[in-house]
Design a protein around this nucleic acid. Structure first.
Length: 270
DNA sequence: ACAGTAACCTGTTTGC
DNA sequence: TGCAAACAGGTTACTG
């Protein structure tokens, strides 16, 4: 479900309720997530959460207890701030409890994660091999160009590879390729430097705009207030199979590339 | 190193 | 209407 804008929106929503606060409890109702939730997370209880960060689609809750909590939302995870003492519902797998609120994790498909990470964080196996942040300074069209030489993988899969650049999921990869007129199935090594420059800009642009709209809700994504994101209204390509291209009017196509649904204009995207 | 595929899981939508 | 298949925003692990 959540790509970078949805994770960022969630992080911003929970930050006021967690940053600077002491964790009173972590109540785990079901440890069967992507990896079993380890007992070591209890080291965070009684600790102060000093700051909340995001790396790729991981949320990092830094504590003063010599480690950090790592949360990933997987495909169907969401975090909501509970202030009214309402009881847990189906798929509410764990709560982070402070004196002011409960941050409650819901995840029907259980592809998400809650882990305890000891510093140095950069050496943790999950974070060690991640590419640059798309909204950061290291990311550029030149980087994409350089890393793609000789690669035959579809350019869409290439930009979704977290070792190349993080945070670009199926929706935003689809959108950025449409925005730049690049066919999603084109070999990554056969895209010019100039077009990678435009693609990098499109990736930044679409992610930044989506964050401003609170992310994209296709079916069940909600932010920490339980509200949907509104970027779905701005989608130019994703889910528009058979509908006219906004650019040229031709019928948009659907094709599965690398096991993921892709949408593109057969005339505009080459 | 690279490319392609299967797997993890549940809920909803689609097609016969 | 009912039932089974297909599909869904992510990531890792395995194969050749």
């Amino acid at each position: 479900m959540p790509e970078l804008p949805e994770v960022e929106t969630t992080l911003r929503g929970i930050r006021p309720y967690l940053e600077g606060r002491t964790l009173q409890a972590i109540d785990v109702r079901d440890r069967r997530l992507r990896w079993p939730v380890p007992e070591t997370i209890q080291q965070a209880v009684g600790a102060r959460i000093t700051s909340l960060q995001r790396r790729a689609k991981y949320m990092i809750l830094e504590t003063d207890a010599g480690g950090d909590l790592l949360i990933h939302l997987g495909m169907s995870g969401s975090l909501r701030v509970i202030t009214d003492r309402s009881g847990p519902r189906k798929h509410d797998h764990f709560d982070l409890v402070t004196d002011s609120a409960i941050v409650r994790y819901n995840d029907p498909r259980r592809f998400g994660a809650l882990l305890w990470v000891n510093p140095p964080r950069g050496e943790h196996e999950l974070l060690a091999h991640l590419g640059p942040e798309p909204l950061g300074d290291e990311f550029s069209g030149d980087l994409l160009f350089d890393r793609s030489r000789g690669r035959r993988v579809a350019v869409k899969n290439f930009i979704m590879d977290g070792r190349v650049v993080v945070g670009v999921g199926n929706i935003y990869a689809t959108e950025a390729l449409f925005m730049t007129g690049i066919h999603p199935n084109r070999a990554a090594g056969r895209v010019s430097r100039a077009r990678y420059g435009a693609l990098a800009e499109a990736i930044r642009d679409v992610l930044a705009r989506s964050i401003r709209q609170g992310g994209t809700t296709l079916r069940d994504y909600v932010n920490s207030d339980g509200a949907p994101g509104y970027f779905a209204l701005d989608l130019l390509a994703y889910g528009r199979d058979g509908k006219p291209c906004f650019q040229c009017g031709a019928g948009m196509r659907h094709k599965v590339i690398g096991q993921r649904s892709s949408f593109y204009c057969p005339r505009c995207q080459r």
